[in-house]
Design a binder for these strands. Sequence first.
RNA 1: GCGGGAGUGGCGGAAUUGGCAGACGCGCUGGACUUAGGAUCCAGUGCCGAAAGGCUUCCGGGUUCGAGUCCCGGCUUCCGCACCA
Length: 831
Amino acid sequence: MTHAAIDAYDAAAVERKWQARWERDGTNHTDVHAGVRPYYTLMMFPYPSAEGLHVGNLFAFTGNDIHGRFQRQQGHTVFEPMGYDAFGIHSENYALKLGVNPMELIPKNIDNFRRQLKRAGLMIDWRYELSTTDSRYYKWTQWLFLQLFKRGLAYQKRAAVNWCPVDKTVLANEQVIAGECERCGAKVEQRFLEQWFFRITDYAGRLLENLDNLDWSESTKAAQRNWIGRSEGAEIVFQVHDYFEIAGAASVAPGTSEMPTAPTDIQVFTTRPDTVFGATYLVLAPEHPLVERITTDEERSSVLEYRARTSKQDVVARKVTKDKTGVFTGAYAMNPATGEPIPIWIADYVLMEYGTGAIMAVPGHDERDFEFAKTYGLPIKRVVAAAGATEHTPLAEAYTDSEDPARLVNSGRFNGLPVSEAKEAIVTWLEEHGRGRAIVNYRLHDWCISRQRYWGPPIPIVYCEKCGTVPVPESDLPVELPKVEDFRPDDSGISPLARVESWYRVKCPNCGGTARRETDVSDTFLDSSWYYLRYPSVPRDDVAFDPVLTDKWLPVDSYIGGNEHAVLHLLYSRFITMVLHDTGLVPFEEPFAKFRAHGTIVRDGAKMSKSRGNVVNPDEHIEQWGADSFRAYLMFLGPYEEGGDFQDRGISGVKRFLDRLWTSSIEAQRTGDGDPAVMRKLHKTIRKVTEDVPTLNYNTAIAAMMEYMNALRAGERTPHINETAPLVQLVAPFAPHIAEELWERFGHKRSVFDSGWPAFDPELAADELITMAVQVNGKTRGTIQVAPEVTQEGALAAAMADAAIARFVATDPARVIFVPGRLLNIVVGGR
RNA sequence: GCGGGAGUGGCGGAAUUGGCAGACGCGCUGGACUUAGGAUCCAGUGCCGAAAGGCUUCCGGGUUCGAGUCCCGGCUUCCGCACCA
C-alpha cells in the first residue's frame, strides 16, 4: 500500500462512522404517529439460519432499502422494519443437528443476523424489530387462531395428510414438492391424523378475483391463479344399486322415476358434463368412504388388497408410474343419462383430495380413462364427433377436443349440439331431475396448520372431558411454549409437547374440570401471515395491531420478496387479511398494494449451493470492498427483478466508481458555476435515475451515474461542486455511507436522506444538438449533427451536404421517412 | 401435459417499446506514470476485411422505408404446477 493521501476513501472507516452516527442520532427512526406522507416499504423477513445472512437476503433487502431511501428523499416518512421468521422446521432441524435447544440457539442466530444487517447499512428502525418466537408476538398469533376459530374458519378433522418420515411432521400441500418434503427431500407418506385446518377454500373465489386488481408481478399472480385452480363443471349424482335391482330399473328414463338420494349415491365432479352419455364406468379413489359399503363380498378381498397396496405407496411412485391400475368393486351405478348400469371401480389415478374423490369415466373423451379402459377391457363409447366423424367412427385414442366443430353424438336429444351448448343444456336437464348441478371446483385445499413439532406457537385449545374442544380465553394468552429438554419429534404422530404432562394437564377454562391442552403447534406460515400488521404496533402489548396505526400505515405500499413464496406466504397472508377484514378488524382486504418479486443471484453462471462451495459470503465481500460497493454491485449485476450472475471481480468496477465519486467530491471547486455541457449531462442523469429507481431498474440507474462520472472527469478536469453534489444525492440510496460522508463534507448539517432529491430541468436535460442517424434504403450510412427541432427539409439538406451519405443517393429520393429528433431514412431506386 | 419467463460480443448485461444494436461494467490489448503493480490515468476492443465495404441479436419464413423489438413455424433453456377429472 502506498502512503494514502490524507483524504483517500476508506470505506471501512466511513461506514463505521455513519453506522454509529445513525444509531446515535436516530436517523433511521420513523415517527409512526406523526410522520407525514407515510410510506411502508417491506421486505420478506428472513428466517435466521445459522449460516448467517445469505447474499440472496441481502440482494432482496438492499433493493428494498434503496426503494425506501428514495421515497424518503421524495419527502415521505418511510417505515422500513425488520424481523425474524424464527419458528419452524428449518430452525428446529438445525437445533436438532447441533443438539442445542432452539431457545438458546435461535437468539444467537438472530444476534448474528442483526449484526450483519447493520453492517449492510439498511435504513431499519430497530425499535420495531420483532421475532415470531417472542411470546409478545406469538401471543397474537394464538389470538389470530382464536379469531378464526370463533368464525368457524378453524376446524378439526381426521384427514389423510402428508407425513414427512424424516422431519416427522405433517406438511401442507404447499410444502410437498413433487411428492417430496420441501425441507429435507424425503418421500412424503400418507397418514391419517386429527388435524387443525383453516377454511381457506371458502375464500378461493375472492382470492382469485382480487388478483386482477393487484399491482403485483404478473408471474406471481399467475402462480396464484394456477394454485387456486378454478374449474367450472358439474357435480353429477350416480345412484348405486346392487346388480339385481338395477336390472329392473334399467329402462327407467330420467325424470320418470323417483330418485331419492340414498346414502350410497356417488357424487362425481366433471368439467365435461356434455359427455355424460359416454360415461361407461365410475372410478372412486381407493380411500373413498363409500368403497367399503358398495364392495360386494366376492370382490372384497381384492379391493382390500388393492387399497392396502396403494395407500402404502409413496406419492412419488404413484406419480411417476403412469400405468393405470385398479380393481372392480362388484357394484354398479346407474348412468343418469342413459339409465344403464355401469361398473364401479377403484383406482389410484383418482385422487381423494380433488373434487369429490370420484369420477365418471368417459374413456372416449378422456386420455386417462381411455388408457384405463383399454387396460381392463371396459367399453369405450363415442359421444363427441368433429366434422367428418360419425358416432360410428372408431376411437384410436381419446378425442378430447371441445372446440367448435365438435358436436354431440350418441347422446339422445342432445345430438348435434356443439360441446359448449351441450354442457349447459345437459347440466340444466340433470338439475331438473335432481341428478346434478353446475358447480365451480377449486384445486386449492384447506390449509392444514397443525404441526407435530416442538418449535412453534402452541395451538390455544384445551380438550375438556365434559365440554369438549374449548378455546383458551384471550385473557389467558399467551400459551407459552415451555422449555423442554427432549424436543425431538418421534414417529408417534404427536408433538413432543405431549410428553410434558406438567404442561398439557390443565383445568378446563369453562368448567374447571380435568382437561388437556392441544399439544400440536401451528404452522410457521401462520406466524408470517400477519407480521406486516404487527410492525407498526410492536411496542404495544395490549393489541395485536393498533387500529389507528394500521389505518395510517397499511396496506403495505411496497413489498419485495422472493417468488418462492408466490403461493405459500403470499396466499396465506391475503387470506388472513380477508378474514380480518370480514371480522371488521382491518379496513382493507388486500395486505400488499404492490408486490415485486426480485430475481435470484447465481455465481459464475451456477446456482449457489453449499455442496458446490460457491456460496457468496456477504461478510467477506463487505470486509474487502465495503458495504457501499457491495450493495451497489449487487444492484448493478443485473435487472433487479431477474437477478444476475455474481462475479467476484465485477465489484471492482463499482468500487472504482465510488473512488472517483470520492475524489471528485473532495477536490470539487467551490466557487462559480458548473460547466454547461456537464450540467446538461447532469440533468439527463437526474432524469434517468429518477425514472429508474421507482421501477426497480437499479442496474441502469447505476450505469447512468457511471456514465455521468465519465463525463464529469473527461479530460482530467477538476469538477465543480454544483456538478458533484446532486450526484451524491442520487448515489445516496445505493451507497448511503459514502453519500452521508461527502454530504457532510459539503458543509451540510443534516443527513443527506433529509436533503430531498435533486430536481431536473427538462430544458437542460434536453440536448442542444442531437446526432441523427441517416439511412439510405434502411441502411445506416452516416449521422448528422442537428438541432433537436430540425425539420425534414433541414435534416435532408444536412444529410445531402455530407459526401459520405450523398454518394449513396444517386437519384432523387423516391420517399423520405423522417422521425423527428431521431432518424432520417432516404429511399431511392425501385419500388 | 398446463402455466410463466428467457435466448444479444470473451463475460454480466443495455436499447426511450418499431428508429444509429452492443450503453454501463468486467475481461482483454496498447500506452503513460512507476523500483514494483492485482494501484491510478489515457486510448482501443461485436465478427470478417489492408481498405472500401460486408456480416451480425437462437434457427427459418413474413409484415414494414426500417425488426433484437410485431406476426407465423421451429429449436434450446430456466422456473412453477402436474393422473386436478
